[in-house]
Design a binder for these strands. Structure first.
Lengths: 380, 380
DNA sequence: GACATTCTGTCAACCGGTTGCCAAAGTGCA
DNA sequence: TGCACTTTGGCAACCGGTTGACAGAATGTC
């Protein structure tokens, strides 16, 4: 008899299974007056066998588990005949790879974390869409987390996500540069709408849109402009203000900053008093949300837009053309930004893994003015 | 000498580490004219030591790894003194538990999958917010996936997520009942806005809102109503239509179904011809997106709302009060629905795990009419 | 002081994959 | 037929945790 020390034997006795078919179909007719929380039918316990593993496949195909692993993830490493047998067994067992089991030895989860400041800001729609597309194209899954405009919550979310994602995309980070650099030291990370020394990032070129906006306003006779400012800790807020501060005087316009404020409808509405008091005839707001909030507050007070006040937003979010008048706004190519950001971080990840460091420099991400109804001639 | 067979020795020589401080700070000044894709600074490779494990803690605290595991996750099982020592070591090493390593033996990932039909439908804002709140309250993370209104893509997403989540929440599923039941057999699952036999779900009570809407329209003199219908495979679409079909005649009104159509702005706009041709003086649309699309299309054609046509939407999404006139709509308590759905699925999960099957039946999730400007007296 | 009971920490198996190393089998070429 | 080289598949360690079983120490009881 051979030696009998079996060091790591797996004894799984899950082959035969119950399937006691006690499904108790409750009659849930009467669609129309649907109740609220439908009571759960007493489901004794999850039926259906546990998910198949490579060990099950190995047994069925009569090979070693490691061979199954290779057949499934290293095409060509295994004899074609064997590979076919394994594929057949996998299909028969309806095998589905367990990503977490794979992530443990490889250290790669094929998962990316996307940190947003505020889910309810429609600006994120397109970013998420674009990111999703680029991610799934390369077999990655996105995990979304929201920081609700708080640097602390953002940093907590990053810490929480960190062990289970291959990389982090910060969409409109509220964290300090130092914290971001610290995170970048630990794992691949890219920022959107922000520049941090030594951290890869995707930032649209805001200059064209702002130039167009100022030219547009100048052409309408406005000479005193306001900037309804967003969060102080937003890099993009500072960037937009900085650009205006340089460019407005170049065109012979005066410009004042009104704020900072929270980047929401309410934040925009809250700026109305200061806007009125400032005597400006036109404002740019940090984003469309604030612009719309301001517009509605102004209208509620009997002012007309653009008669008494011209308003321009940023981003061209969903709904910015619902308003009356429709909002003029500096469009940001959000979808492309999300897409590029994910491609960039995947490149960083691959590079860390020692693969080809190809980095495509695509077309510029430029912004442009969308002229709609909320801008008009300055009152004489 | 004792026996010397060490079966599973871990030899990690990661104690000393490099930290070659070659951070090459590139000067990225000039905020305003930010370029597009900022080139990545040549980052030799990820700096910073690999994440600490319980083995590192064990060595530092002079105990066995299993003791560390217990100290960290089974408070009280371990001597207070030892536990403190371990906690201190964990803090010193900045230890962070690896969720995937934990998920493997326990089979629980503390992660929930949320399947949406369309991220860009603002209806999901509140659902996601509510779900997020309930999930994080109980230590769970949400993974969002989008099916883009396709049953196939939805089912594929469910399959893909399945191995790595503890449960699935289908928000507005487009899959067949059979498929949903099949998934439910494999793992905890709850549906929102849908009733499926034997599958736990959260559905708002649409009757009150629809009654109010019909009463409102009746009071304004409307007798011929249209329902601009959404996707055929949407349970909620059928439910709304079924409710209207029963209730409108009870009030002496006629009602016709116009559709089906895609549940977007464009889908609503596309229904305009059929709405005009039908001769109705008021319509309810499947959701706010279609209602707004229809309203804008009507206005673009020179019709007035509500003068020529009264319009009511469903859900009261973000932006439904941006329009002019503002949209009257049947509000759905989306946030509560998301919250309740997550609580429900966590109960299902706990129950499967053999814990207390407490199930709170909260207040009813009722809908209500929000009267704004898009409804008015019927034309004589 | 003897014995039963509770506390506390260790051992080793296990979750489901991946992968370096190696030997057996197959192939090519002289 | 002999030998070098390539293919192919198995073995066992490993990723980072969890947990049942168990033994030694501490404590309680009479």
């Amino acid at each position: 008899m051979k030696g009998a020390v079996v060091p790591h034997t797996r004894n799984r006795s899950r082959d035969e299974l119950n399937v006691t078919d006690d499904l108790n179909v409750t009659d849930a007719s009467n669609l129309a007056t649907a109740g609220s929380a439908q009571p759960v039918t007493p489901r004794a316990s999850r039926r259906g066998r546990p998910a198949a593993t490579i060990y099950d496949i190995a047994k069925l195909a009569g090979v070693n588990p490691s061979t199954v692993s290779r057949a499934l993830s290293k095409p060509g490493r295994i004899n074609v005949k064997t590979e076919e047998r394994i594929q057949a067994a996998a299909k028969e067992l309806n095998y589905r790879l367990n990503p977490m089991a794979r992530a443990l030895p490889t250290g790669r989860s094929s998962t990316l974390g996307l940190l947003l400041a505020d889910i309810t800001n429609p600006m994120f729609f397109d970013v998420v869409r674009g990111a999703e597309r680029a991610a799934s194209l390369r077999g990655y899954t996105l995990i979304l987390a929201e920081s609700q405009e708080s640097a602390d919550r953002e940093s907590a979310a990053a810490e929480r996500l960190s062990p289970s994602v291959d990389g982090l995309v910060l969409v409109t980070s509220r964290m300090s540069d130092a914290k971001i650099v610290e995170l970048t030291d630990r794992q691949p990370l890219v920022v959107i709408n922000r520049e941090v020394d030594g951290v890869p990032g995707i930032v649209p070129d805001i200059a064209p849109g702002i130039d167009e906006a100022l030219a547009h306003l100048g052409g309408l006779g406005h000479t005193a402009i306001g900037f309804v400012s967003g969060p102080e800790n937003s890099w993009m807020n500072r960037a937009r203000w900085a650009a205006l501060l340089v460019r407005a005087p170049q065109r012979g316009m005066t410009i004042v900053e009104i704020g900072p404020g929270v980047p929401t409808l309410d934040g925009g509405a809250a700026a109305l008093d200061r806007v009125s008091a400032s005597g400006v005839s036109a404002v740019l707001a940090y984003n469309d949300l604030m612009a719309i909030g301001l517009m509605r507050a102004a209208q509620a007070r009997g002012l007309t837009v653009p008669g008494d006040l011209s308003i321009i937003g940023f981003d061209d979010i969903f709904g910015s053309d619902f308003t009356s008048p429709q909002l003029s706004t500096v469009r940001t190519p959000l979808g492309s930004i999300g897409e590029r950001a994910v491609r960039l971080i995947l490149d960083v990840i691959d590079e860390d893994a020692g693969e080809s460091p190809h980095r495509e420099i695509g077309p510029q991400l430029i912004t442009e003015l969308v002229v709609r109804g909320s801008t008009g001639p300055a009152a004489r």
